[in-house]
Amino acid sequence: MKNLVDLHTHSTASDGIYSPTELLSHAHEAGLKVMALTDHDSTNGLDEALEAARQYDIDLLPGIELNTDFSGGEVHVLGYFLEYKRPAFQHILQSLRNAREHRGQRMVEQLNEAGIHITWERVREIAQGSVGRPHVARALLEAGYVQSIPEAFEKYIGNGQVGYVPRYKLAPIDAVRLIASANGLPVVAHPYDHPGVIRLQEWLPDLCKAGLVGLETYYGYYSTEQETTLLQLAKIYGLIPTGGSDFHGPGIHPTPLGGRYVPYEAVERLKAAAAARQGQEPPTFELPHPVEE
């Protein structure tokens, strides 16, 4: 069955390899009819992506992905149909990107102090947009310290390694509320990758009360058994099963652009939920603690 939908992709506005226009070109070549751009902590690629989507006759859903932390690890939260130009929303995103920038600089400093020589200037050049650990990893690869991106995480910038720096801690419920503050539709991303389904079920009631509308079910390499479990969980909590490839570029994630089948029903249900919120004044949101600039 040919796949027409990919609701989880990244561009150079965060940590993807392709610009938004290039990404839409590849989506067209892959035969996609619906795509969401979900860059980390950034909507800076959306205007360009929307223009390119018109050129390639692709229905583009404006999105984002927020990284959050809890006591046992991290959870990612996707947002769809954002009213992303709201000033208060953009102000908070800029604060989160500033925190990423500061973290990246400290990572480079720690690597240099350990005799691993890469420059912050090169990391910024690689990033083009919002800085993330993958950009530091690519600088390490370029400098010959590793043979692959995963090796860079394992040896140098993963948790507990010499270049690791903790990030600004945003809780999953705060990410849900932040997305809701832009009338967006919050969705828990790749639930098996971080908290695990058992742990996730502890939080779902509170996340749903805060505005959660979906659960990423059709994800990358998830097995049929995992997909079935997530579908059952989505049904119990009245959540929309969504999905996508989590595409950053070739060789970064195992699933190619459009490589995971996502039922078109997911798009229809998201559109209906977005239409129900249209014209409403969303709740306000403030970061729970200051961002280190």
Rank of each mutant, 00 (worst) to 15 (best):
I116L: 11
I116N: 04
H117Y: 01
I118M: 04
T119V: 08
T119S: 15
W120F: 12
R122F: 03
V123W: 10
I126G: 12
A127I: 06
A127F: 05
Q128V: 15
G129F: 09
S130I: 00
R133G: 08
R133W: 09
R133C: 09
H135G: 04
V136Y: 03
R138P: 00
A139H: 02
A139K: 02
L140Y: 07
Y145V: 10
V146Y: 02
Q147N: 12
S148L: 01
S148E: 02
S148W: 00
P150I: 04
P150T: 08
F153W: 12
E154M: 08
I157F: 09
N159H: 14
G160H: 11
V162F: 05
G163C: 08
Y164H: 14
Y164M: 04
V165M: 07
K169W: 08
K169H: 14
L170D: 09
L170M: 15
P172H: 01
A175E: 05
V176M: 05
V176S: 03
R177D: 05
A180P: 04
S181D: 12
A182F: 07
N183P: 10
G184A: 07
V187K: 10
A189S: 13
A189F: 06
H190F: 06
Y192I: 09
Y192L: 13
Y192F: 14
D193W: 14
D193M: 13
H194M: 09
P195D: 08
V197T: 14
R199E: 15
R199K: 14
R199A: 15
Q201E: 15
W203G: 12
L204V: 07
L204F: 10
P205E: 05
P205A: 04
D206P: 02
L207I: 09
L207A: 09
K209T: 13
A210S: 13
G211I: 01
G211R: 03
L212Q: 08
V213G: 06
G214M: 11
G214N: 12
E216F: 02
E216N: 06
T217C: 12
T217M: 10
Y218C: 01
Y218M: 01
Y218F: 15
Y218T: 01
Y219L: 00
G220T: 05
Y221G: 02
S223A: 03
T224W: 02
E225R: 11
Q226H: 14
E227L: 00
L230Q: 06
L230S: 05
L231N: 11
Q232L: 11
A234P: 00
Y237S: 00
Y237V: 01
L239A: 11
L239Q: 07
I240H: 11
T242E: 05
T242G: 10
G243V: 06
G243E: 07
